[in-house]
Design a protein around this nucleic acid. Structure first.
Length: 297
DNA sequence: AAGATTTGACCTCG
DNA sequence: CGAGGTCAAATCTT
């Protein structure tokens, strides 16, 4: 039985939405500035405000998520086929599996809530487990391209809130470049859909030489856990410690697409905000959000 | 036939 | 010791 009120959940949800809307407004301002080629200091300030806004939101959602009422009742929803069970009952040869796997450390994971299990990666289910005090079993998925070395994992569990939602815990980033489908890159904010924003601040050093925007340096966004800082300098050192900021912030892999910028890419465009874009309405609907698993386990 | 899913067994960790 | 994560044989789907 969930001991926490749904009212509290909804209040926090509203609060988060307000903050996200603020972030959106600031993003629009930033876009305007970028188009007008204004002084970079202001751009940085705005960029920082955007990240701060999202960061605050995520903190809010983190505490909110931990309070999603746990569903009572322990029975899993397994619809079991008896005949099949009998067949499966056959004891398999006992193998010594000791040491064959380790229980996973829970750091470097993130969680999303979504009305669908869909993301844009190909997953293969490798297990399902009834979870204590949960109506629904938890499903375990690994990347279809495991044989290619991709160790991405996710766990999906249906939860019951005000609507049917799936909580997806991603444990390891994809190292493969495979997505199920590729959606078009959003190049700019869409005048038709103002909820669509895009950050086109990407100026690589190389590009920089080809244009006269010498004042525009690659924007570094380093993110270590909850701390997000923006810096102007694109040093190699910064690169090595970077995580995908958009993953960190949204858990969406930039709209759930193949990440434009991953820690695994050798040719990182100097940690610029290349291709950083999102649909704010997706977030405003709280269809997806994430938190670090510190709160979860 | 090959790949995906199901599910009981077995493992680790708290 | 129990909960939860993973393995892998059996089964299903394409």
């Amino acid at each position: 039985m969930g001991s926490l009120s749904l009212d509290n959940f909804h209040a926090r949800k509203r609060k988060a939405m307000v903050k996200l809307m603020k972030g959106k407004e600031i993003a629009v301002q930033l876009q305007t500035l970028l188009h007008e080629n204004s002084e970079p200091v202001t751009e940085q300030q705005l960029a920082f405000q955007i990240y701060r806004s999202f960061s605050d939101t995520l903190s809010e959602l983190s505490s909110c998520t931990t309070q999603i009422p746990a569903v009572e009742g322990g029975a899993s929803a397994s619809s079991s086929d008896d005949t099949r069970k009998k067949k499966m009952k056959k004891k398999r040869g006992v193998k010594d599996l000791r040491g064959c796997y380790k229980r996973r450390r829970t750091s470097d994971s993130w969680v999303t809530l979504s009305p669908s299990m869909e993301d844009n990666y190909a997953w293969r289910k490798y297990g399902q487990k009834s979870i204590l005090n949960s109506d629904y079993p938890r499903s375990y998925f690994r990347c279809t391209h495991k044989q290619d070395g991709c160790k991405a994992l996710k766990q999906v569990q249906r939860i019951r809130g005000d609507e049917i939602m799936y909580q997806t815990t991603y444990l390891i980033h994809h190292t493969c470049n495979e997505t199920l489908r590729t959606r078009p890159l959003i190049v700019d904010s869409d005048p038709i859909d103002p909820n669509l924003i895009s950050f086109q601040t990407s100026i690589t050093l190389e590009q920089d030489q080809h244009c006269n925007h010498s004042s525009k340096k690659p924007l570094i966004v380093s993110s270590v856990k909850h701390e997000i800082c923006v810096s102007e300098d694109a040093s190699h050192e910064a690169k090595s410690t970077l995580e995908d900021p958009w993953n960190e912030i949204t858990g969406l892999d930039t709209l759930g697409y193949k990440p434009v910028w991953t820690p695994y890419q050798d040719e990182v465009e100097s940690a610029s905000l290349d291709g950083l874009h999102m649909e704010v309405n997706q977030l405003c609907g709280i269809q997806n959000f994430h938190y670090f698993d510190d709160h979860m386990y």
